[in-house]
Design a protein around this nucleic acid. Sequence first.
RNA 1: GCCCGCGUAGCUCAGUGGAUAGAGCAACGGUUUUCUAAACCGUCGGUCGCAGGUUCGAUCCCUGCCGCGGGCACCA
Length: 583
Amino acid sequence: MNLLELLRGRFFKALEGWAPDPLTASALVKPATDAKFGDYQANAAMSLGKAMGKPPRQVAEEILAKLKWDDILEKPEIAGPGFINLKFRNEYLQGQLTVAANDDRIGIAGVSRPGRFVIDFSGPNVAKPMHVGHLRSTILGESLARLHRFLGHMVITDNHLGDWGTQFGILLYGYRNQLDAENLKKNPVAELARLYVEVRKGFKSGTDEEAEGDPVQDACRLETVKLHQGDKENLALWKQFMPFCLEEIDAVYQRLDVHFDHTLGESHYQPMLAKVVADLLGQGIARESQGAIGIFLTEEGTPALIRKRDGAYTYTTTDLATIDYRIREFNPTDILYVVDSRQHLHFQNLFETARRWGRTGPENGPRLVHVPFGSVLGADRKPIKTRDGKAVANLDQLLDEAVRLAGEIFDANRAEDAEPENRAMVAETVGIGAVKYADLCQNRTTDYVFSWEKMLAMDGNTAAYMQYAYARCQSILRKAGAGPDTLDTKASIHLATAEERNLAIQILRMEEILVASASELRPNILTGYLWDLAKSYSSFFQNCPVIKAPPTLLPSRLLLCHLVARCLKLGLELLGIKVIERM
RNA sequence: GCCCGCGUAGCUCAGUGGAUAGAGCAACGGUUUUCUAAACCGUCGGUCGCAGGUUCGAUCCCUGCCGCGGGCACCA
C-alpha cells in the first residue's frame, strides 16, 4: 500500500475542478515534518491562497470540505498558516497490516508501467587488481538492479569490462620480460596480478610530462597496439589470459553476491568500431583534425576523439557502438550508467553524439542516464586515482578485514543461543554487509572518505544494526513457537501503544520508499528508511513485551514482529545485504 | 581560462520551497532478577561558507563573491 499516493489521489479529487493545477497542489502532500503533526501533511493551502486571493486557512477549509477522509483518516486539522495535518485511523492501519501480512510482497504493488532497464555497472579493468574504487559502482549498480526488478521493471545488467585496453599491454609486456613461468602454471591468477603490479612499479611516476618518454610505458603501449591490430601471438595470449582474469573478478562478485545477465566487455565491440567511425564521418557528425577523428560538439570546446592519430579507437567509440548494440539487442526504455562522476563530461558528449547519430531522441530510443557517484577519497581527502597505480586498499583484503572484525564482535557479544558453528557465516554476512551498507547509506553524489574505521563500525546506522533487529524479531518468533505454519497471520492487530502505531506506519510506508528510492536512483533513501524502521523496532522491543504480553495482544505483537522482519529482510535484500537468523 | 560538483554540530554526514534544521560517532549521565545490552533513554553541541535577489515562506531556487575538489585532444 502506497499511503502517500493514496492521500495524493484523495487531494487531487478534492481539488479537481476549482483549484488551479490540482496535480501540483496534490503533490504537496508529504510525510509530516514532525510526528506530533500527524503522519502526513498537505501544504497546498498556502500557495493556493496566494494564487486565488483568499486567506490560506479558508482555502484549507474548502479543501477539507471536499476531501473524502473519514474512511481512512482521523479528522484532519488545520494548523499554523494553513497546514493540513493528516493522521490515519488506527482501524485503517490495522486492516492494511493484515493485508500486508497475508501478501507475499508485503502488500507492495509493482509499477503500473514497467520499463526495460539496461544497467551498466562495475566495469572493472581485467588484469588489474580490483580495489575499493570499484566498490561503489558495483554495490550501487547491484542495488539499483534489485530495486527496479522488485518493482516490476524488466532489468538487464551488463558488466562492460575493460578487457581490451592498455592494461592488457602491461600484462603482455610483463609476460615477455618478467614472467615467473613456474608460478604461472601453479597459480595463474596470482601470477598475472603479480605481473601487473611489477610492471607498474617500473613506470616513471609523477606528472604526465615526467612520464613522457618512459621506455617501459612505450613498450606496453606497443603491445596494446599489436593486440588491437590482430597480432597472432598477442591475441593468443589475450585468449589465454582472459579466463584467469575473469576467474579473479568472478570470485569477488560471488563473495559480494553480485550478478550480471551479460558481461560484454570492450573487446566484444571491436568488430563494430570501424563502421561507427565511418558512419559518423559519413553523416558529418565527426571530422578529421590533427590526424585524429573527433566529434566537435561546440565551436571552441575540445572534441571527443573517436579515433586516435595512431588509428586506435577510444572508449567513446566503444561506448557509441555499445549504445547501438544495446538498442538493437535489448530495445530498452532506459540505459543507466553507474559510473564515477568524474566521467560526467564524457557521458554528456556521448549522449549528445548518440542523439545526433539518431540513436536517441524525444520520439525514439532509450533515455540515457549517467548515474554519477562521488570519488573514493584517501585519508588525505584526495581522490584515490586508479591511474597512478599506487597501492590502494585491495578489495579482498578489505573484505577480509571487515569479516575478521565482525567475527571479533560476534565473540564478544553473542547471545546464549547463538551457534558457534555459524561463526564464520555470521562474520562473513555481517562484515560484507557492513562494507556495502557504509557505501549505500551515503548520498551517491557525495565523495566517500575511505576509512576502515567507519566501514567496519558496528554501531549506529549500519547493516549490523538492521541485521541485529532482524535477529531479535526471529528470536522472539522462535521462542513463541510462531513458525511459518504456526503464526496466525490473520490475527487482528491492535495498536495499543505509541511504539506499535509507529511501527505500523513504518511498515506501511515501505512501498512509497521503494518507489522513491528507485525513481531517484538513490539507495540511501532505502537505507534511511530501514534505519528508521529498525530504530522503531528497537524502541518497541524495549517497551512492549511480546511473549509476556496479555493474551489479547500477543498474536498482534507477534504479527508486528513478523512484518518488521519481512520488511527488514526485503529491504536489505534489495541492497544486496543478507540477514541472519541468530547473531 | 572554461565546465561540473561541493561548503550544514568537535568529527563523519543526512535533509527539504514550509512549522522549533536532523542522525551517527565523540563527550557526559542514566537503564539489565523481564523476549539478544551489537540495545534503549537523556544531556551537550548550529550566523546551514559570505552577500544580495525571487517568494506568503529560502539551508533548499537565481546572481555575485570566497574556499575546496574534479574534469577539459590522442588513458579508460
